[in-house]
Simulated assay, not measured.
Amino acid sequence: MAKRSPSRQQGYAYLWALTMVLIMSVYLAKVGETWQNRIQRAKEAELLRVGLEIKIAIKRYTENNIGDNPQTAYPKTLQDLVQDPRVQFPKRYLRKAYKDPITGEDWLYINAPGGGFLGVMSKSTAKPLKTANFTEDYSGFNEAKSYQDWRFAQWPNRGGGRR
């Protein structure tokens, strides 16, 4: 009976090990992609929640306009929503000056006529995962090309909707 050489058996073991590494790599790539999508969806949900909270805070701020000065109609920064600078006593419309959940940076402001800002939008130009089936508050976000198209604003004389 012929004996197999050890080098030939080692070749099969090496081939088997390479196959297992390939299978594990493909599996780990899929797991990584799934986690990335899950993280992205969580950031999108946070963006929608915080954006709506800021929009409501701007609405409350403008409804409580002090005097007839149009310069005070809109806040100048998010900090104005955390502590209204127009009054001496603590008046809050927003719990804190939130950062953009997508970038972790400050928001881009949507300038208001006469000064201040009437809304915020993300600095991110990435394409959102969610592109349909938004609630009525976010109906203008359908088919957005980037997160910058998700604008959270209290539009003047339009009931607060988008565009």
Rank of each mutant, 00 (worst) to 15 (best):
R4T: 14
T135G: 13
A73T: 01
I66L: 14
L15A: 12
F141M: 08
K130Q: 15
Q148M: 10
E143R: 04
D149A: 09
W107D: 02
Y98P: 00
T103M: 09
N157D: 12
T34H: 05
Y138T: 06
K127S: 13
V87P: 05
M20I: 15
E136N: 06
T19M: 13
R8F: 13
D100L: 07
S122C: 03
D149H: 04
L78Q: 08
Q148T: 13
G161N: 08
P156V: 09
A132E: 15
K127P: 00
G104K: 06
Q88L: 11
W150N: 00
A42S: 11
D80N: 09
G160Q: 00
A73H: 07
V82N: 07
Q83D: 07
R60I: 09
S7T: 11
D68S: 05
M24A: 14
Q148R: 12
R38F: 10
Y74D: 00
T77M: 07
R95I: 15
V120K: 01
F117T: 07
D149C: 05
Q36N: 10
N65I: 14
L118S: 06
P156T: 07
A112Q: 04
Y138Q: 12
E44P: 01
I110C: 02
S122T: 10
S122F: 11
T125I: 13
S5F: 04
G115L: 08
D68W: 04
L48Y: 05
N64P: 00
S7C: 01
W35P: 00
G116N: 05
N157I: 11
Q9K: 08
K3T: 15
F134I: 06
G159C: 05
A57Y: 05
I23L: 15
L78Y: 07
N111Y: 04
A45L: 10
L28C: 03
K43Q: 15
Y93I: 09
Q9V: 13
K145F: 02
G161L: 09
K123L: 13
V31M: 06
V31Q: 11
Y109F: 15
W16R: 05
E44G: 01
G67R: 04
Q148Y: 04
T19N: 02
